[in-house]
Amino acid sequence: AGKPVEFRFSNSDNMPHNFAILRPGSLAEVGMLAESTARDADAMARQYIPRSDQILLASRLLQGGQVQALVFEVPTAPGVYPYVCTYPGHWRRMYGALYVVDNLEKYRADPVAYLAANPLPLKDDLLKFNTRSQEWKFADLVANVKPLPGGRAFEVGKELFKVANCVACHRLNNVGQEFGPDLAKLDPKKQTAEHILRSILEPSKQIDEKFASYVFVMESGKLITGMVVGEKPEAVEIVIDPLAKGKPTRLLTDEIESRQKSPVSMMPKGLLNRLSREEILDLIAYVVSRGNAKHPLFEAHHHGK
Results as ranks from 00 to 15, higher is better:
1 A>T: 10
2 G>I: 12
4 P>N: 12
6 E>G: 02
6 E>K: 09
7 F>L: 03
7 F>E: 07
8 R>D: 15
9 F>C: 07
14 N>I: 12
27 L>Y: 01
38 A>M: 07
45 A>W: 01
46 R>L: 05
49 I>C: 00
50 P>F: 00
59 S>D: 04
59 S>A: 02
62 L>D: 00
65 G>W: 12
67 V>L: 03
77 A>W: 14
78 P>L: 05
79 G>I: 04
82 P>H: 00
84 V>S: 12
84 V>I: 15
84 V>A: 11
86 T>W: 09
91 W>A: 02
94 M>R: 13
94 M>L: 15
102 D>T: 11
103 N>Y: 07
103 N>M: 06
109 A>H: 06
111 P>Q: 06
112 V>Q: 15
119 P>Y: 02
129 F>D: 07
129 F>V: 03
132 R>K: 09
132 R>D: 07
136 W>G: 04
137 K>Y: 06
161 F>R: 02
176 G>W: 08
176 G>H: 12
181 P>D: 02
181 P>Q: 06
183 L>W: 00
187 D>I: 01
195 H>Y: 14
198 R>Y: 07
198 R>N: 13
198 R>I: 07
202 E>R: 03
206 Q>W: 15
209 E>C: 05
211 F>A: 07
212 A>C: 14
213 S>H: 04
223 L>H: 09
227 M>F: 04
228 V>Y: 11
229 V>W: 12
229 V>I: 11
238 I>M: 04
243 L>F: 08
247 K>H: 08
252 L>S: 08
253 T>H: 05
255 E>G: 02
260 Q>P: 11
260 Q>L: 13
269 K>F: 05
269 K>A: 10
270 G>P: 02
270 G>F: 10
283 L>W: 00
287 V>A: 00
290 R>P: 11
292 N>E: 15
296 P>N: 04
301 H>Q: 14
304 G>H: 14
